[in-house]
Design a protein around this nucleic acid. Sequence first.
DNA 1: TTCTGTCTTACGGAAAACCGTAAGACAAAA
DNA 2: TTTTGTCTTACGGTTTTCCGTAAGACAGAA
Lengths: 221, 221
Amino acid sequence: MFKKILIAEDQQSANISLQKTLHDLQIETTDYVYYCDHALSWIKNAQRDQAPYDLLITDLSFEPDNNTQVLEHGTDLIREARNVHPDLKVIVFSGENRPSVIDDLFENLKIDGYVRKARHDADHLKQAIHTVYNEKRYQPSAIKQAIREENSFEFTTVDITIVSLLYQGEMQKNIPFILKQRQLKPCSLSSVEKRLNIMKEALGFVKNEQLAVYCKEKGLI
Amino acid sequence: MFKKILIAEDQQSANISLQKTLHDLQIETTDYVYYCDHALSWIKNAQRDQAPYDLLITDLSFEPDNNTQVLEHGTDLIREARNVHPDLKVIVFSGENRPSVIDDLFENLKIDGYVRKARHDADHLKQAIHTVYNEKRYQPSAIKQAIREENSFEFTTVDITIVSLLYQGEMQKNIPFILKQRQLKPCSLSSVEKRLNIMKEALGFVKNEQLAVYCKEKGLI
DNA sequence: TTCTGTCTTACGGAAAACCGTAAGACAAAA
DNA sequence: TTTTGTCTTACGGTTTTCCGTAAGACAGAA
């Protein structure tokens, strides 16, 4: 089993139960920090002292407070940690439940496991630790399924761009110019209108306002 | 100090740390349930057995799972609990951080305390329990301040209704009819346009899409 | 190469939203 | 009561969006 684990979690109550969970697993060394910056320091120091961590368990969102931090988000921490310690195992422990966001963690940050703060999270975390220790990914099957179900409609890059631009306040009739600048196709006004219609119809909407809220909530824009 | 406390929290890890926290406070009887429906049953049974709870600590959002529940949300539980036990003290322990939503809990549900799942939540919870025990409200001052700062713009009932209707897919030109049905004023098309302009200008927006997302994120609609 | 089907674009009329102005309603003060 | 200022409504012209149609571009098959 893992010998040395670092926990980065700013929420005190979550941190407490993580401590208890790891204690149950009889991990030899477990360190707990409340800030991303501290986590990175500890990882660096551990490397320097030739006693690297086996596993990082981190939250995603960290509350800003008086102690200004360089790393503001769990993803920043993961990226930096991988710089100094490329083969560090990483399990993310977060409340995030947007499948597209979680999937992105596996795809782009190559995390090893994801445990959502939810009903059986403590049990799931234990499972995740065992699974990752066995060199496997702990990726709840529900996620991939949810991605498929939820995104019953497949947004193209252009789709996302169009909705983003609307959300940023661009007038629909100006969007073709911007799409051309970004070398995206199709980029005619007709196509913009058509894509908007397709998106709305697929999701049962009639107004752009609904589409914008939907995409924002799903983390697509 | 409180003798008998009930905790309704579906997130296992949060539940674990709540248990530890109450243990630290040496509460005589603490019961833990993972569903709103169970919580209500326990409250009813406690009343029947003439051993009522002194305090309910509850989350707001409960994850739906296979066990279908009558009460789906913490607010439902609080309402029902108050029906059978009007003077039950209630502390809400949740991740919700939208000031308008939290304020609503104090104003309408008359909760006694709110502790947000955040950096020092375990400490805050202890404070909250002490404060509520002393017959005072535990309402983080930051909330009222945030309400003022954040809602630099004051939305009227009509404003909220207009944005809601847009979000529900109503065409702007039909909104006057609906406002008249609901006996809201002003209700002319001109006024709808004017209110939308005022809202957008106040918040630095140019498109309704931005306004809809803003109001949705703030929990105003 | 030509044919064919699909995707993209262009265009134009209709509908909706936008925006300024002026008239009307209403309440508080004189 | 009248006056005054503000809020609400009505109206019309302009801009933007919507939507259907047709022309054009393009890739794959014959």
